[in-house]
Computed example of a mutant assay.
Amino acid sequence: MAETSASDILVRFKNVQKSYDGETLIVKDLNLDIRKGEFLTLLGPSGSGKTTSLMMLAGFETPTAGEIMLGERSLNRVPPHKRDIGMVFQNYALFPHMTVAENLAFPLKVRGMDKTDVTERVKRALSMVQLDKFANRYPGQMSGGQQQRVALARALVFEPQLVLMDEPLGALDKQLREHMQMEIKHLHERLGVTVVYVTHDQSEALTMSDRVAVFHQGEIQQIDSPQNLYEHPRNTFVANFIGENNRLHGKLLSREGDRCTVGLENGERVEAMAIHDAAPGAPVSLSIRPERINLNVQQEQNRFSGRIREFIYLGDHVRIRLEACGNSSFIIKQPIATLDPKLSVGDVVSLGWNVEHVRALDPVAVAE
């Protein structure tokens, strides 16, 4: 990807820290550039610092150290309502005593816009989220999905340059959540507004984002496109947090260029991509995605045998749990169409994967 020039940056976090007690840093020395027009997701487990970072950008929290810039101006002393930022929360935060149209008009009236403009903007925003017929309804008369659309329209109605979304789909059921993910993604593509989105749901992050920043213990572990995060995780935390992952523990035996040989605890050897910079003899953790492993195929560089322990049927694919490579919960994903119907529990099978699909990463405690 081409280098981003300064004029393409909308938001810049410079050495931002946040502590609530003066001792523990919830956000540690955050440096992050958010590009104009991009959909950036902050992803991570609870307590990783993602929501705190969003709240500092919104103005509801103040950085303990460092500076947040929006365009050319520092936001550190700008109150939330003067930041030109739209906000969508998980709980919608709609005014129950106001109709949908009045809810949407509110941020415009606060900004002193005249009546004709307000009416026109509200109409446009309602049409954008396909709620034209709901202008005179009250939030209490609408479903969760409809209320979330109103919240979305209200965040966009004053045409801010930046919209922040904090777990906005968390309260919706799975089907509606997936539908709304696509709605928001398409809306973003149409409007070209910059979106910063917070979630702990990895599939949501992968589906919607241009880039994802993975947070852990107050620091960004990796910021990348969804595909790169999934296929090329830089460390064990990212490999385990994004998607499903088989993890094997071993020692680095030798390294040549970008490849290495790892000895597993049971004596088997694996050829892998050398991502973690370890010296021979040092512990490493291997990461292999379940869908990258093949059964009964001859040509891979890494071939082992395993005993089938369980089949887990999931409609379009089957997860097969095996005892393999010293791991009793080794998972392979196979599309139903390619599964050999003669396989059964207890069978010993050969399995293998190519060297480019296994990554030698930093070691983690086996007890984890």
Rank of each mutant, 00 (worst) to 15 (best):
V348Q: 06
V297Q: 12
V364T: 10
A337L: 13
R303L: 15
I320E: 04
A274T: 02
E310F: 14
H97M: 07
L32R: 10
F95Y: 02
S46G: 07
P139K: 05
G86D: 00
S305G: 13
G267L: 10
A239R: 01
E256F: 11
N245A: 12
T338A: 15
A213G: 05
I9V: 15
H97V: 03
I9Q: 03
V88A: 04
E256T: 09
A105Y: 03
P63L: 08
K109P: 02
S329I: 13
F158S: 11
S350Y: 03
A213M: 01
D347Y: 06
L314N: 13
E38Q: 09
I242G: 01
V349A: 02
S203H: 07
Y313P: 03
G326P: 06
R234L: 07
T41F: 07
G49R: 03
R73H: 07
N15H: 14
K342Q: 15
G250M: 01
T199K: 02
A239D: 06
A6Q: 12
T52S: 10
P283N: 15
G86E: 01
V262C: 00
I220K: 00
V345R: 12
R124Y: 11
E72W: 03
G267F: 05
Q217D: 07
L25V: 13
N246E: 03
Q222S: 00
M87W: 03
G144W: 05
V16G: 00
D84S: 09
L30Y: 10
D316K: 14
L42R: 03
T236K: 09
Q217G: 08
E244W: 00
Q175D: 12
T64F: 04
E61P: 08
L286W: 11
R234I: 11
V88P: 04
P45Q: 06
L54I: 10
E38H: 06
I288G: 07
